[in-house]
């Protein structure tokens, strides 16, 4: 809720701030409730946009978000040196976005290598811990695994392509409240 209206603040002459363009911003750490307003507002906005996109474009929404993610992946990977080994590339990738998206290369107990070959496909399990997409979807009560999650699909595929030169696909195995399991399928 707004603390006061703009005309009220002007009248009160309470603003102690002199606006010189070289001095803005006046606070390095904004108060948490202001940050929360902005953050939650953005999450709500994103959620509404993706929902409307899905309602209008149907499965085309997936294509839009995938493309957006891929652009992001390509951009991020431009500053990387070329790495041949997919595992190493993933490790460097997870370092960059850590916190926004915390990606862990994972293997189940009965396997001894991260790269798994099963039923004719070669893949690596990725566990997404922190995830802005999950936070956004859970804020709005929207189901996980939809078009917004596909931005990450695009991101990882685009980045891996740029760094290693290999083509890949991402498949969502399970979405959960604290972590999601995905498969990076290498071709």
């Amino acid at each position: 809720m707004a603390e006061g209206t703009v005309p009220q603040a002007k009248e009160a002459g309470s603003a102690p701030t002199v606006y010189r363009s070289e001095d803005v911003p006046l606070q390095c750490i904004p108060p948490p409730d202001e940050l929360e307003d902005t953050l939650h507002g953005l999450m709500k906005l994103n959620g509404l946009i993706i929902r409307s996109l899905e309602e209008i474009a149907g499965r085309g929404a997936n294509a839009v978000t995938y493309r957006a993610g891929r652009k992001y992946g390509h951009e991020v990977a431009k500053y990387f040196r070329k790495i041949e080994d997919v595992e190493e590339a993933l490790k460097e990738l997870s370092y960059i976005l850590h916190g926004q998206y915390t990606i862990e290369i994972w293997k189940p107990a009965d396997k001894d290598r991260y790269i798994i070959e099963e039923n004719g496909s070669t893949f690596i399990y990725l566990v997404f811990h922190d995830c802005i997409v999950r936070q956004t979807l859970r804020r709005n009560g929207q189901p996980q695994g939809g078009p917004l999650c596909l931005t990450l699909f695009g991101y990882v595929v685009g980045a891996i392509e740029e760094i290693t030169g290999r083509k890949a696909k991402l498949e969502i195995v399970h979405t959960g409240p604290n972590a999601c399991l995905k498969k990076l399928i290498l071709q």
Binding site: P108, H129, Q135, R139, G176, P177, N178, C180, L181
Partner: peptide, 29 residues
């Protein structure tokens, strides 16, 4: 084989499960 998704926590009607050593993902929402 547990990867810490905590879907079991979400569905358990009695909050009977406890996990240790799981990365607690950010819940800034």
């Amino acid at each position: 084989s547990c990867m810490g998704c905590l879907s079991c926590h979400e569905i358990c009607p009695a909050q009977a499960l406890e996990h240790r050593g799981v990365h607690p993902s950010r819940r800034h929402y």
